[in-house]
Nucleic acid binder design. Structure first.
Lengths: 332, 332
DNA sequence: TTGTATGCGTTATCAA
DNA sequence: TTGATAACGCATACAA
């Protein structure tokens, strides 16, 4: 158990009081320059590093932010988490990742992180129907929604413009000559799936295409469900020539299902995904996708949160919609 | 700022002293049952939750463990991290993920986490040549190597039996009738790459095959390098009929490269990977792979670490080699 | 078996 | 501009 240098020892070494050292540490402005220099010298000599825990005792802040995700092994979350971790660290914050397994109640998770005294929380997944829960956690802990957002909330959110994303996908397919376009979504409980569906719906109308419930799936996108749906749809005589999958992970399963059903991508069926996860750019997959601009989303969300945490009242962007970006590869 | 209930209030409510409450909290054995009940009742009534930070001040432990990874968006790390996060939480610990970007010096990272007063550290990536650094961090912070390990160390490690893994891959390929088997490895700085190469080498000898440097790559496995190597190797008249890629990520790039070079998998060239990341099981990819038994690795590593943290001196497994497992899919 | 008093390392309050 | 002193919430040594 190595002894850790404390503020007291620094004070003694520098010939000042502990409070003065503390003030230097916290950039308190009114310190005589010579004392400040002495203290800084002492800090360097003794290799002093402030004990964050003791600090937290008083300030109630921990310089760590909580990040709530459904499933960190989902590439979308792991890739965005990576940005968040690195950006946060640059700003002096650590990240506690809470993986809910897509099951845990948000209230519960927030409470938990709040008890850990995190300084702020980024929520990567939330139901559209989540009640306002501003009361649940200590109101001094800011929360920012990221990726998904509830219908009703007073909190800030940073999400992709999912409706527009679907429209871009359809515009692209229409331009390629497709007119019968299937859609594989997911539970309407999540704004990502819901908004992407709405965008699909509106675009189908706008482009004067036929809206056909038979080629739309809104089931939970398990591998099985996807396989079954694709098989059903492709074995119809008047089958769709394109499939929109609302995530890249779904799309990659679709790729397989298409091949299983003796069709070629993109010759017989075009496939387009959403999110642009890393694997999609692998040439073997080469998935056309509507990209979430993850880096920008993350930076916006984190900036907003840190603004809130640090009480910088300069304008906060409010709810932000990040524009999607079409990335055309070989599946369309 | 909601007021948080403290141990004092619980004490008052229960009609005992704060220390008694503390003792109940810490399962101190000699408490009169009736008092214990009263305290527990008070805790429930007041919804008291102990302040971990205050606890940490005294115990110097934080109930969080640090996890050092190269790149959390690498599926191997995100998938194992997920297990670690969830398992750790079940045991009452949180996980701080430190993403080094494959660049940062280990010493530095350890120091950083040590300053954060983590209770223990799992190191997911380390150079084979890393010096013993037992002195760097407070010796009261246990460290366990996971996935990779240095040549020389006093610390525990949990890794896959990588040599054996390569041998299994070759045995499988030989059994399928292959005799000219290419190998794509990576920097020998990492035990994963090194041991997998040694296993390859030994197995080639054991099976009486020809060891041919021309069909072995040990470069950093960037997408470009892989593409170039595969092209070179496949355009040889006497080309290999199988390629061992030392990670699934490499293998998936190989899959593409093979197709680019007008060969079929597995008809012309069989491909086998390592790790069994989630995407490999996607039927579209269907990659044959030597699986790291991630769940078992994680559990062993975490158990070892928690043993160390909690001073449970019952036998600790020491260095553990997890057996690999061959998963045959459609690429061989 | 229990209570009192002390201290963990820092910041905040107050007086000087 | 600085220092003494009191918190922060809990665990623990010691006394009872």
């Amino acid at each position: 158990m190595k002894h850790r240098v404390t503020i007291k020892e620094v004070a003694k070494y520098a010939g000042v009081s502990p409070s003065t050292v503390s003030r230097v540490l916290n950039n308190y402005p009114f310190i005589k320059p010579d004392k400040k220099v002495k203290v800084e010298e002492a800090i360097k000599q003794l290799q002093f590093e402030p004990n964050e825990i003791a600090r937290s005792m008083i300030t109630k802040k921990t310089k760590t932010i909580g990040l709530i995700v459904d499933d960190i092994s989902n590439p979308f979350f792991s890739e965005t988490s990576r940005f968040i971790i690195n950006k946060a660290r640059q700003r002096g914050y650590e990240v506690l990742i809470y993986d809910t397994n897509g099951e845990e109640e948000l209230k519960h998770t927030l409470k938990f992180l709040s008890n850990k005294n995190v300084s702020g929380i980024i929520v990567g997944s939330v139901s559209r129907f989540e009640q306002k829960h501003e009361e649940i956690v200590d109101e001094s802990i800011p929360i920012v929604y990221f990726n998904r957002k509830p219908e009703q909330t007073n909190l800030f959110s940073v999400t992709m413009d999912n409706k527009k994303a679907s429209k871009m996908a359809i515009a692209h397919l229409v331009q390629k000559g497709h007119s019968k376009i299937a859609f594989i979504g997911g539970p309407f409980e999540y704004s990502t799936y819901y908004d992407r569906y709405i965008g699909y719906y509106e675009a189908i109308i706008e482009f004067g295409l036929e809206l056909n419930e038979d080629i739309i799936s809104r089931e939970t996108p398990t591998s099985e469900n996807i396989q079954k749906f694709v098989a059903k749809v492709l074995n119809d005589k008047d089958r769709p020539t394109a499939i929109i999958a609302t995530t890249d992970q779904i799309a990659i399963t679709v790729l397989d299902a298409v091949v299983q059903n003796n069709c070629q991508v993109p010759a017989d069926v075009a496939v387009i995904g959403f999110d642009n996860i890393a694997i999609s750019s692998n040439p073997y997959i080469g998935l056309t996708t509507v990209s979430q601009q993850k880096r920008q989303m993350v930076e916006t969300a984190l900036n907003t949160l840190l603004h809130l945490i640090e009480d910088v009242v300069t304008e906060i962007p409010g709810d932000v919609l990040i524009p999607p970006k079409l990335i055309i590869r070989k599946t369309t």
